[in-house]
Design a protein around this nucleic acid. Sequence first.
DNA 1: TGCCAGGCCCTCTTTAGGGCCTT
Length: 206
Amino acid sequence: MPNLNANSIVVLDFETTGLSPQQGDRAIEIGAVKICDGVVVDSFQELMNPGRPISTFIAEYTGITNAMLRTAAPCAEVMARFADFIGDDNLLAHNASFDKKFLDAEFARIDHNYAGEFACTLLTSRRIYQDAPNHKLGTLVNYKNLAEDGAFHRALFDAQMTTKLWLVMLDDMRNTYQLNNIEFSLIKQLAKTSKANTSRFLSNYQ
DNA sequence: TGCCAGGCCCTCTTTAGGGCCTT
């Protein structure tokens, strides 16, 4: 299992036409940050044309307009570039199940497979920050005083905020539970551990 | 016609229901 400290991770966020690729929804923007040993080393952001107009709700929610998408490259072209960007890196997102299903759907359209596994800041934060008001990305950014200028619901900014949250969560886990080496396997196991057992699990983790 | 996402996770649970989170 890859070691998160020793390998680069790509933190990604999609803006989309809706909630479900199974219902025909498409990606309209991908933003991502590559981190290596806790340091941001690269980033990626592109709008992509889904081939049809987006709803008023999505335009207002994201600030992305049909005019902006009309001149954007097609999804297939952008996703091919994004495939090169992520390579075989492990992946991270806030509510990763959402971004994974869009990544899988868009990659399936260009017949591309990827090797990385997903970790999720939402699932991790529900265990690490049990006293947070809720576990929305914006709330957690404020909860940990990570706020900076930018627009939530744009892909790169959300990926940047998810990156900050991730790095703070790793620090908090290291400091609270004296963990020197946080591996991918720990994050996976943590996501399957109940909230009530989280403290015991991390305290006993070797 | 009526439906319309889905995975996670808690609890007044497991023969289920409903809230959270993402766009």
